[in-house]
Design a binder for these strands. Sequence first.
DNA 1: TGTACATCAGTGAACGCGCGTTCACTGATGTAC
DNA 2: TGTACATCAGTGAACGCGCGTTCACTGATGTAC
Lengths: 228, 228
Amino acid sequence: MKTSGRRWHRRSYHHGNLKEVLLEAARTLIEQHGAFGFSLAEAARLAGVSPAAPYRHFRDRDALLAEVARSGFERFAARLDAAWNNGIPTPLSAFEALGRAYLAFAREEPASYAVMFETGVSEAQGTEAIQAAAASPAAEKAFNVLQQAAAALCRQLPENERPPLKLVAMHIWTMSHGIASLFIQEGSVARKVPLSPEEVLESGMLIYLKGLGVLPEVPGEETASGES
Amino acid sequence: MKTSGRRWHRRSYHHGNLKEVLLEAARTLIEQHGAFGFSLAEAARLAGVSPAAPYRHFRDRDALLAEVARSGFERFAARLDAAWNNGIPTPLSAFEALGRAYLAFAREEPASYAVMFETGVSEAQGTEAIQAAAASPAAEKAFNVLQQAAAALCRQLPENERPPLKLVAMHIWTMSHGIASLFIQEGSVARKVPLSPEEVLESGMLIYLKGLGVLPEVPGEETASGES
DNA sequence: TGTACATCAGTGAACGCGCGTTCACTGATGTAC
DNA sequence: TGTACATCAGTGAACGCGCGTTCACTGATGTAC
């Protein structure tokens, strides 16, 4: 079983795509042992190579972690972008899809999400490389999608009522991140409130948008137009 | 200097209050090296005792970390409770104070906050003790303050328009936590948006409350009633 | 007030462990002729 | 098509290190008489 799994030398060289396999191993370990209970040696073991092998692909432990963050931001940005889809068909429906995509990423890649956003505490904790990843173009792109969405929503407002774009984008990000961060670690919070993260986010966003003055249709339209 | 600092044998015994000193040392180290770059040996060194000394006060490393979380929740709850002050003088002003207290705690005790809420990733990461702390009475009490505040705000709504209390409490918590979590680690986010966490939280909450239907006064009252 | 004893906080030396990283190496792959 | 060589991914043994934890101990404090 184990050996057959290692038999598919997918690519050209010895192991194949060790780099990707190591990143995947790191994510798995981080899910199990937390973002900093991760060890390079264990990742190598999980990938079925010697403890020295990772050094062919990453300068050191920190570089691997940084790549987990960087590549995570890339998939994150791509996913948010696809969900937003330029606000098609409508800004509102696209916005909902965006929120769901945000939570889906955090749920499906909790290890990536944790390394990307919960680096521990402050900056100067030796993981400068990760901090660099958080300032990478990919991270920028992800935030830009949120900002685009905020812009599209604000465009529905008369010009003199529009709050600063960045502020609205931050509100959106803040709420999404708060829910992702609190709910993804299944423990305490999920036990307190019998609601899915998606329900909390969507209801919160509806209230927020109503407060913003977006949301032309009256909430409760669905009950007004019939049950199914 | 160092020695004079160690001279004030505050209490009765040998060292004095080693337990508290160790917790403080742990918080300091966590601020510097991240929530899991913390080591029991280093904490002992910082407290000026032998590496075996901590075992007189904590079963093991994990127990110390759990106590950082537990005592953190206690101060957190006390602080939120004091700020909310039973909704006096008005629910709205008390609510603002509550939000500021939330952010103040995260800013002043980033290590505690990180251990309390950013335990890494999922539950089963060996830190069951910390997870237990998150379910402690103190943690419960903190959440209850938020729920009280949510209740007081909702009471201003006609009964048939009130969303579920727990949902509103979650929205509030979610936004506060999102901002605390994103802003407290000074790096990436603070650079993107030139706003203080307090400004983001307060503006976000105002929009949310407006959407809820609370907020009788029109926003912008301050500009209407003069400048100073 | 004084002595004998129990308690208990902190010592310091020691342990085994897994980690990050290095090194000279090996053997497969790709390339030039 | 075949040979010679450079490249490069992975090996395996070794290193020094700091950690968590244990142990028998010491010496100060509190308590009973």
